[in-house]
Design a protein around this nucleic acid. Structure first.
Lengths: 219, 219
DNA sequence: TTATATTTTTAGATAAGTCTAAATTTGAAT
DNA sequence: ATTCAAATTTAGACTTATCTAAAAATATAA
């Protein structure tokens, strides 16, 4: 069984690979994990020897199928535990990340499958991220950042790109939650901020907020 | 924060100290943890340096207050997670120990307190063991092994002394569960086995089974 | 009480994961 | 094309938790 450390490396490489198509760089991994690049470099050799990644010196790394399977399973567990924490234990969506970082390493397929059933087979975590199924398939929603909408258009909030506590708390303060309808009233070219209507109220959202908020338009 | 390893040592020392009043011996700890005595000996020095135990060479060790607090908290978490696994995820009482051994190390007082509330503040785990409260107090039931009952007396099953899968599965097979009433019909001096009535059926229980089954008599 | 068996400790080694400092490679800019 | 900065790797060291083998202390039994 992969150690906590190995699981964290694989998960991080998986997530970084979603952003950079050529794979994950030593520095990026190092920054994401909070370890020194030298440590990462060492570890990459070991992961390559275990055939969990493909690694050539000075090049970005990619997961093998075996590595991906482990990474996706960790993400599956992370997201299911987040649902549990929010739905059953009434944690707020900005409070669950660190706890799920611990719970994701609990090693039992039986446990996670039962948890999934107990939670009524949720497809998304509290931040709108898709929960991989038990075969490792990830069904991504066809969503787009709010910046894609033109004036007069509207959509339903499906997720966030930035899951930082700060952003999530900001959204709470504005009463913006998953499922809310948002309509773009006006786009100001000056700072690319938007006036929107949601929950019966009119708000002004900065470009940065709009970039980090995913919506789905009817289609 | 104490490492998993340290937490396991402290928990084991706590549990061994319940049996042997003078403390836990190196060998007993070694056997319980499945590590070599030499390793334990080494670790005891470190735990003593951290003032989690009091240790003098060649003598059984005892927990300090700080050590006891950690140990009891681990046990609290272990037992609450066991309740969760049985009550919410429908695991059987013989299936939950190893999972709880992992879950008990999740480090969040907030989580465990919320879990406790979610489970309706249970006082006992699925094996009848008391769940320490958040201040570390353990309210033990005034129970006794079935061997204490005389012919004609009866009691209610409150717990097991032996929580091995084998014993728990044996009890399942006999339809003996926590809360069941058991009446002693006859005690055979030959092998100290008992004929009992429980759940409307008459059974024969060996002395070993009776020693490992706790009951509470009305009083 | 002395010999023997058991328990415990010490010494030295190993593996995993981390670090700092120095060396090397890559890539970007003149 | 050459130089320099950034990224990466290597080398050597440290910590935690473990082991085996050997030594020392304690407990037991004749």
């Amino acid at each position: 069984m992969a150690s906590f450390t190995v699981e964290n490396y694989l998960k991080t490489i998986f997530q970084l690979s979603l952003k950079a198509e050529n794979g994950a760089s030593t520095n990026a991994i190092s920054e994401a994990l909070g370890t020194k690049a030298a440590t990462v470099s060492d570890m990459l050799k070991k992961l390559d020897a275990q055939e969990l990644i493909t690694y050539k010196k000075y090049q970005a790394v990619k997961l093998t199928n075996a590595g991906r399977d482990i990474a996706v399973n960790i993400i599956r567990k992370h997201r299911l535990w987040e649902v549990f924490l929010v739905e059953k234990l009434d944690f707020k969506w900005d409070e669950v990340h660190d706890l799920a970082e611990e719970l994701e390493h609990i090693d039992s397929a039986e446990l996670v499958n039962r948890l999934e059933g107990f939670l009524n087979n949720p497809k998304f975590d509290p931040h709108g991220d898709p929960i991989p199924d038990r075969d490792g398939n990830i069904h991504r929603l066809n969503q787009s950042p709010l910046t894609e909408l033109k004036s007069g258009e509207s959509g339903y909030v499906t997720g966030v790109k930035d899951s930082s506590r700060e952003f999530l708390q900001f959204l709470d303060a504005q009463n913006i939650h998953l499922g809310n309808k948002i309509e773009i009233v006006e786009i100001f070219e000056y700072d690319k901020s938007r006036t929107v209507i949601t929950g019966g109220k009119t708000l002004s959202l900065s470009n940065q907020v709009c970039k980090n908020l995913y919506v789905k338009t009817e289609n």
